[in-house]
Amino acid sequence: NQASVVANQLIPINTALTLVMMRSEVVTPVGIPAEDIPRLVSMQVSRAVPLGTTLMPDMVKGYA
């Protein structure tokens, strides 16, 4: 089972991601792979992401 990136806190719209905002977790459906966490740092979210939400490619500007 592949771990995905999950929000560790509420991430407001247009916030630049930092390591403390993200954790890896095995979830369904699968989201952005956990190994991409270093690449996500400083990228902005395109919408508010609630705590515990799996990050999907369309939620991060410039990821897809």
Rank of each mutant, 00 (worst) to 15 (best):
R23P: 02
E35C: 04
S46C: 04
T53E: 14
A34G: 15
T54Y: 02
L10H: 11
I32P: 00
I11D: 00
I11G: 00
D58N: 15
V30A: 14
V6Y: 02
S4H: 01
V45P: 02
V20L: 15
P33H: 09
A48D: 15
A16V: 10
S42A: 15
R47F: 07
V27P: 01
T54G: 02
V30C: 04
R39L: 13
R39A: 09
K61D: 11
A64M: 15
P29I: 05
V5Q: 00
P12C: 04
P57Q: 07
S42N: 12
A48G: 08
T54V: 08
P29N: 07
V20F: 12
V5D: 01
I13E: 14
T15G: 05
L40G: 00
M59H: 10
P12L: 06
V20M: 15
L17N: 00
T15W: 05
A48L: 10
Q9P: 01
G52W: 05
L51A: 14
T18A: 07
Q44N: 08
G52I: 02
I32V: 08
P12I: 06
L40Y: 02
I32E: 00
P29M: 05
V27M: 08
S46W: 13
P38H: 15
L10Q: 11
V26M: 14
P12Q: 06
K61V: 15
V60W: 00
P50H: 11
I32H: 01
N1I: 14
T28P: 01
V6S: 03
V45L: 11
T18D: 10
A34H: 13
V26L: 10
S4D: 00
T18W: 03
M22L: 08
V60Q: 01
Y63K: 03
M56N: 09
A64C: 04
V45Q: 00
I32Q: 00
G31E: 00
I13K: 12
P29F: 04
A16T: 08
S46D: 11
M56C: 04
S24E: 09
E35K: 06
Q9V: 11
Q44A: 14
S4N: 01
G62I: 03
A48M: 11
P57M: 09
G52T: 02
S46M: 13
A34V: 08
A7M: 05
V45R: 00
S4A: 03
S42Q: 08
S24L: 06
E35H: 14
A3M: 10
V60R: 00
G31R: 02
A7C: 03
G62T: 06
N1R: 08
M22F: 06
A34C: 05
I32L: 08
A3R: 14
A16K: 08
T15P: 01
K61Y: 13
V41T: 07
A64L: 14
M21Q: 06
Q9L: 07
S42I: 03
L10E: 06
T53I: 15
T18I: 05
V5N: 01
M21V: 04
N1V: 13
S46Q: 12
T54N: 02
I11A: 00
Q2T: 14
K61G: 07
A7K: 01
Q2L: 15
L51N: 15
D36V: 07
D58T: 11
Q2F: 10
K61A: 11
M22D: 01
G31P: 01
A16S: 11
T18C: 04
E35S: 14
T54Q: 03
G52R: 04
V49R: 03
G62D: 15
V6P: 00
R39I: 11
P29V: 05
R23I: 09
V49W: 02
M21T: 03
T53K: 07
V60M: 04
Q44H: 09
A34T: 07
Q9R: 11
M43Y: 13
P57W: 09
A3P: 13
V27Q: 05
L51I: 14
Q44K: 10
R23D: 05
M43C: 04
R39W: 11
T28Y: 14
S42G: 15
P12T: 11
S42L: 08
E35W: 12
I11Q: 01
V49I: 09
I11H: 01
R23N: 07
S42W: 07
P57K: 11
D36Y: 11
P33S: 14
E25S: 11
V60A: 00
V5T: 06
P57R: 07
S42H: 08
P33T: 08
A16R: 10
A3G: 13
V26N: 15
I32G: 00
L19R: 10
L51W: 13
D58W: 11
L40D: 01
L55P: 01
G62R: 06
S4I: 02
A34K: 08
N8L: 06
P38T: 13
I32F: 03
V30D: 11
M21I: 03
V41L: 09
K61T: 11
T53C: 04
N14K: 06
V41Y: 05
T15Y: 07
M22C: 03
P29C: 04
V20C: 04
V41I: 11
V60F: 05
P57N: 06
V60C: 02
L55Q: 00
Q44M: 11
Q9N: 07
K61Q: 12
N1F: 10
N14Q: 09
A34P: 08
I13N: 10
M43S: 10
I37F: 03
I37V: 09
I37N: 01
G62Q: 09
A34W: 10
R39E: 08
M22R: 00
A3I: 09
S46Y: 08
A34I: 08
A64K: 04
G62A: 07
G52A: 07
L51H: 12
T28A: 11
V49G: 02
G62V: 04
L55R: 00
P29A: 05
Q9G: 05
L55E: 00
E25L: 07
P12V: 06
I37H: 03
L10K: 10
P38S: 11
S24N: 09
M56V: 12
P50S: 10
V45M: 07
P29H: 06
L10G: 11
V60P: 01
S4R: 02
T28S: 09
D58S: 10
E25K: 13
K61W: 13
V6T: 07
N1C: 03
V41C: 03
S46E: 13
L40R: 01
T54P: 10
T15E: 08
A48R: 12
D58P: 06
T15H: 06
T53S: 09
D36M: 15
Y63A: 04
V49D: 02
A7V: 09
T15R: 07
N8S: 12
V26D: 07
A3F: 13
L19F: 15
E35G: 13
V27A: 07
V26W: 10
L10A: 11
T15M: 09
V20T: 08
P33A: 11
Q9T: 12
R47P: 02
T18N: 06
V45W: 00
T53N: 11
T54K: 05
K61P: 12
L19M: 09
P50T: 13
P33M: 09
V20D: 14
L10Y: 10
N14G: 14
S4T: 06
R23S: 10
K61F: 12
A3T: 08
T28I: 15
N14D: 14
L40I: 06
Q9Y: 09
T15I: 09
P33Q: 06
A48V: 14
M59F: 10
S24Y: 05
K61N: 08
M22T: 01
E35V: 15
A7S: 11
V49A: 06
V45E: 01
A7P: 02
P38I: 10
D58M: 08
P12S: 10
D36L: 15
A7F: 02
D58E: 08
V5C: 04
P33Y: 14
M22Y: 02
G52P: 02
A34F: 08
Q9W: 09
M56S: 09
V26I: 14
V60D: 02
M22W: 02
P38A: 14
N8G: 12
G31D: 01
D36K: 11
P29S: 04
V26T: 14
G31L: 02
V5S: 03
L19G: 13
I13Y: 07
M22K: 00
P50K: 12
V20S: 15
T54D: 00
V30I: 13
M59K: 02
N8D: 13
N1Y: 14
D36H: 14
V5G: 01
V41M: 09
Q9I: 09
E35D: 09
M21A: 06
P29T: 06
P33F: 14
T54H: 03
P57L: 05
T18V: 06
P12M: 12
S24Q: 12
A7H: 02
V41F: 07
V49P: 02
L40H: 02
S46V: 12
T54F: 03
R47G: 06
E25Y: 06
S4L: 01
L19S: 06
V6K: 04
L55S: 00
R23K: 09
M22I: 11
V45F: 00
M21S: 05
M21W: 02
P57I: 06
S24R: 13
P33D: 06
A16L: 08
P12N: 08
G62S: 08
A64I: 15
D58Y: 08
N8T: 14
L10S: 13
